[in-house]
């Protein structure tokens, strides 16, 4: 009896060569993280929704606002509202999907330095924030031109050059809060719920506390991040004290939890 053994064609004898590999540059990591934010179905639709909601909000102002309110500020705030909700969601999912969708198993084996990955995510998040704000201002400007022409009134540009950066900063702070919650909680659902708790439930509680306890009234602007957010969105953060208040709430709600969260994240098990 003869048996034919077909040798696998791909096998060739070779000695292993130890190759020298170069470290992964940070720019590459940022590009990869940006890509990962939008190459999933949910990420894709979030990106689309920013554009769509900007246009819808602009349209709503043109249709419903009285002629006197057809100003750039109306458009900016109409677009800013949905934006201020979606942007933090994007920031949250950028971090938590590695755990909730378990893609971190691959991510952190390709790049074992978790601090670098999270850093790249933070840079990518800021870039998305800036890009979205640019789109929002542009759509708002077009809306303002079109709206005033339709209403037959003068085009009013009433968002000053000092207010615009504050609005941008406000959105970035919102994203940073979402990002922080993502790092601390590392679960999409918990972080999203957490975001609505700290942005919708918490202000009410602090407001109430300030009403019933007089000593808290002076303290509130230093602790309540929603207070400093409102100031930013209205472009009303002007004095040194107001900036110090912003620094204080940023320290309490972003810097400290983020540092603690990162310490845990770096040692935690990725499963």
């Amino acid at each position: 009896m003869t048996a034919t053994i077909v040798p696998p064609a791909t096998i060739t004898e070779a000695t292993p060569v130890r190759r020298t590999t170069r470290p992964i540059p940070t720019t590459r990591l940022v590009k990869v993280e940006l890509r990962k934010m939008f190459n999933t179905r949910s990420g894709f639709w979030m990106l689309i929704s920013i554009g769509v909601l900007s246009v819808v909000a602009t349209g709503a102002v043109i249709i419903f606002a009285p002629d006197s309110a057809v100003t750039y500020e109306s458009f900016a705030s109409a677009i800013g509202l949905p934006m201020s909700v979606i942007l933090p969601m994007i920031a949250i999912l950028a971090v938590t999907s590695e755990w909730s969708q378990r893609s971190g198993l691959t991510t952190f084996t390709l790049v074992p330095s978790r601090g670098r990955v999270i850093g790249a995510k933070a840079i990518a998040t800021v870039l998305v924030g800036l890009g979205s704000m640019a789109v929002a201002f542009a759509v708002g400007a077009v809306g303002n031109l079109a709206g005033s022409a339709l209403a037959g009134v003068d085009t009013v540009w009433d968002v000053s050059l000092s207010t615009a950066p504050q609005i941008v900063l406000g959105n970035l702070v919102g994203m940073a809060i979402g990002f922080t919650l993502g790092v601390v909680l590392r679960a999409s659902a918990a972080a999203i719920v957490g975001y609505f708790v700290v942005s919708l439930v918490l202000p009410g509680i602090l407001e109430l506390l300030a009403l019933v306890r007089e000593w808290f009234l002076d303290l509130q602007p230093w602790i309540d991040w929603n207070y400093t957010q409102v100031e930013l969105f209205e472009g009303a953060t002007n004095t040194g004290e107001e900036w110090a208040m912003l620094a204080s709430t940023t320290m309490i709600w972003i810097v400290i939890p983020l540092v603690v969260g990162l310490l845990f994240l770096r040692r935690s098990e990725v499963k």
């Binding site: 378990r102 198993l105 691959t106």
Partner: peptide, 9 residues
């Protein structure tokens, strides 16, 4: 773990 991938990608 082959299942540890983002399901939406």
């Amino acid at each position: 773990d082959a299942s540890a991938q983002h399901a939406g990608r």
